[in-house]
Nucleic acid binder design. Structure first.
Lengths: 213, 213
DNA sequence: GACATAAGTGTCAGATAAACACTAACATAC
DNA sequence: GTATGTTAGTGTTTATCTGACACTTATGTC
């Protein structure tokens, strides 16, 4: 008796912070009006993580992102066309790191709190990814994955405030992140705007997300 | 161009607490000496959760357990025979709730800190499930899923201590769990041993795991 | 009724988290 | 070159939460 065989896809919720908003990258479906997450079929001899990265890279040009498996969706009726398993991931990209700053035609960065209708169960996927990201802010250094190579503490604080959707106290915030010792001063300053320059920081171990508490 | 098709299996790490130890249910492989997790192929029109429950039920007879998806393993070389995707779950069962108290031949409850060699990557699966369970103790009421219908606070504390592998302060423990208001007194007492009887408690919302903090 | 055993109960101290306001450095306009 | 606007940068105090700690109570057995 042969085992049942199923098509397996990977899909990625790619987050970025643009214009003080948390946004996700969506692709306009070949078929119609709806939007979908980037992704596609996993090959026969391809690891799932690799498949997710490959599709993301092919469609957006970005490499080396922080990528984490989210959940596997497999309801038989999730795609009315045919039964497909979707192994979903989420990834974070610093605002400046996209090869195509404004992605090519058919792609769009859309704010998470005002998404259009999404294909299949992709709205559930985005919601779950958002929950996970917000939860992970509390007990890990994942937010650093949104930062460019050099950044100011105010910029980092703005990232936290954007994801949490609430303002934070400046002094308490600085105390906390500096006590984690996961970022360090570059020695340079950022001279932008008509005001005192801000010290620049960099991540001590880029690409590594550490647990705190 | 047809999409690649893959066999998809589900596997479950079934935890229970027996004799003050955290144990997992293992099945002796058809093939040889190694042990494996209960599970099997997902059918063409079967939800993944349903598949996990079905295999678990068929192999152990237990129904209605708390079951949660853990991770999807898909490395092409994880099974040397042929490429298989494994969607893994973990489940919790109260010590007394097994149809077969000592499971049938070919099954065994084995303590998590002294497991034999497991098939494929099942040792990784168990390790990950254990981590998740221990983490979830801290921020949810998942431990209640190990309790029988009626139980004493000392029994509940023993469950926590077993999973965490460390003793807890009795007064602080009671303060915390009672303040959560997720359990309530039954009014009965347990009259066991040569000592003061213990009040019995029950879970307010059985089957529901709530987040705390 | 003495003894062994586990159940049940509060308080205090240290650590952590939250609230809060001013000075410093720069660019620009006058 | 001085006044002004703007964001960067910095400590202390208070409230809350967490962790340590010891004795009394109720039962069964001898």
């Amino acid at each position: 008796m042969l085992p049942p065989l199923l098509p397996v896809t990977t899909a990625v919720v790619l987050f970025s912070i643009r214009n003080e908003r948390l946004e996700v990258l969506l692709v306009r479906c070949a078929a119609g009006a709806a939007w979908a997450l980037p992704g596609g079929h996993a090959e026969l001899d391809e690891d799932l993580d690799t498949s997710a990265r490959r599709h993301l890279e092919a469609q957006t040009g970005v490499r080396g992102l922080y990528l984490e498996q989210l959940y596997t969706f497999g309801r038989p009726d999730r795609d009315p066309e045919r039964r497909v398993i979707a192994v979903t991931y989420y990834a974070l990209v610093p605002a400046g790191r996209l090869g195509l700053a404004l992605p090519a035609d058919g792609f769009a960065w859309l704010p998470i709190d005002a998404l259009p209708a999404l294909e299949l169960d992709h709205a559930d996927v985005v919601r779950l990814a958002h929950q996970r990201l917000a939860a992970k802010l509390e007990y890990s250094t994942i937010a650093l994955q949104f930062m460019p190579e050099h950044f100011t503490l105010s910029e980092l604080q703005a990232v936290y405030e954007t994801i949490l959707g609430a303002p934070l106290d400046k002094r308490n915030f600085r105390k906390r992140v500096l006590s984690l010792a996961c970022i360090e001063q570059t020695g340079e300053v950022s001279r932008q705007g008509h005001h005192r320059p801000a010290r620049l920081y960099r991540v001590r171990a880029p690409g590594k997300v550490e647990f705190i508490r």
